[in-house]
């Protein structure tokens, strides 16, 4: 395993250096659609961060050991947009799409993570936006359902 980690680390470093696909300052990283003023809004990383961020540390099925995430609470996003809607249709860069109940995201304090262990996350590290639940805070979250709702490389969210 340490061996793999070493390889992967080099892979991440390599890709991070050579292919800064969305490194452009002010580029849109997330688009939100739905029943709110304007009906559609795009966010750059800086804009998202400006909404205020939260941090928690948790273990996940996709990481070794505990990881600290920092990002905007989904509830905060809803609050800022004054958005209505029961369901968030979340779509990833790889076209993976899933319907998540807004209530579930809000109640279970899911965040739109922008940083992992203090670093912005590139696409190769599930970035730039990663919906993550505080799994360690509530053992009931550790189910396939919430794993499937933890979408990485999030591109857009449609509130319905």
């Amino acid at each position: 395993m340490p061996f793999i980690q070493r390889i992967l680390a080099s892979l991440v470093v390599l890709t991070g250096l050579c292919l800064p696909v969305q490194a452009a300052e002010g580029a849109t990283v997330l688009t939100v659609e739905g029943q709110f003023d304007g009906g559609r809004r795009s966010f750059s990383l800086a804009e998202l961060e400006a909404l205020g961020t939260q941090t928690f540390t948790t273990s996940t099925p996709w990481h070794d050991g505990k990881v600290t995430f920092e990002g905007v609470a989904f509830a905060r996003l809803m609050e800022v947009l004054k958005a209505q809607g029961d369901t968030a249709e979340v779509t990833a860069l790889n076209a993976y799409s899933i319907d998540v109940p807004v209530d579930d995201l809000v109640t279970n304090k899911a965040i739109l993570a922008l940083k992992r262990d203090g670093q912005y996350m590139p696409v190769s590290d599930k970035g730039p936006v990663f919906i993550i639940y505080p799994f360690d805070a509530d053992p009931a979250l550790n189910t396939e359902v919430h794993y499937s709702r933890s979408v990485w490389q999030v591109r857009s969210i449609a509130l319905r």
Partner: peptide
């Protein structure tokens, strides 16, 4: 071209996922 670069990053990200956590244990 940008799509190719994005998806290359996605595939790299996938291998990162495979190398860690539960899938990492399966590989090991």
């Amino acid at each position: 071209a940008n799509d190719v670069k994005l998806f290359f990053q996605i595939v790299v990200g996938r291998l990162n996922t495979w190398g860690a956590g539960e899938f990492g244990k399966f590989i090991a």
